[in-house]
Amino acid sequence: MAIELQDISYTYMPGTPYERKALKHVTLSIEEGGFVAIAGHTGSGKSTLLQHLNGLLTPTSGQVLVDGVNLSPKGKAEKAKALAARRSVGMVFQYAEHQLFEETIFEDIAFGLRNFGCDEAEVDERVRTSMALVHLDFETYRDRSPFQLSGGQMRRVALAGVLALQPKYLVLDEPTAGLDPKGRKDLLATIGELHRKEGTTIIFVSHNMDDIFQLADTVVVMRQGEMLLSGSPAEVFPQTETIAKAGLRPPQLMTLLTRIQEAGVPLTADDLLSRTPEQAARAIERALKSTQNQKGRRGNDAQ
């Protein structure tokens, strides 16, 4: 089962001078259990694309299928099905903390659950679990006002509000924008954990190629409303020229390893795709050792 975008296009404000084609014939399939990153220059249509995934926007042409259900059907019977399908896609907006409104954190997280018609016991239960997922202590925070928290904590509350709905697919628009390095790392760790432990399919937008490189198993590169590239990071990032055309740069680790390779250290193509600094360090060590061995051998031969 998967989310499928079939040849979707979207135009903002059609028929006015402000008309703007934000998406052009995008076809994309997101497998269940995937960890998909969407990258692209500002204004390339990433947020527009995301909003199609749970039916907030209806494509001007083409269709969106979630687990085989069309999100914008014509018939009445299918509408109920479409609603259920939409609800299986949780959406965390950019600066999600700006959507908080309740008096207490508990109530804010429970907002979605109440809308979905959960009973009190279940609401309580699910708020507890989702607060644990985002590492907020239930007893400490349940009765506090969300507006007394720091920005990073507020974003956690907003994330918990979506997680409480137990979405099968979690869509995040620049989840780490405006967070300090630690907040960013924690949040990404939380998302990684969700993917690993709960098996949630993650789709996220990020401007940070390093994060994408470390986390994602699929990268989609957008440019002016079109999908320029998609594939695994190992397939996408070595295409440096195409990536540069989209206004992006390769991950720093990859750039560094390429430079080291150019300087004469015999790194293999696989080494260049090391995802963590530790992995990279091991690769460099191995390569250096092998050159030393060769040099040593050559030295012996000369004698």
Binding site: Q51, N54, L56, R87, G90, M91, F93, A96, H98, Q99, F111, G112, N115, F116, G161, V162, L165
Partner: peptide, 13 residues
């Protein structure tokens, strides 16, 4: 528009 969409994603109607 953004806030409405965000709350709609949480089931508000």
């Amino acid at each position: 528009d953004k806030i409405m969409k965000a709350q709609q994603s949480r089931g508000a109607d």
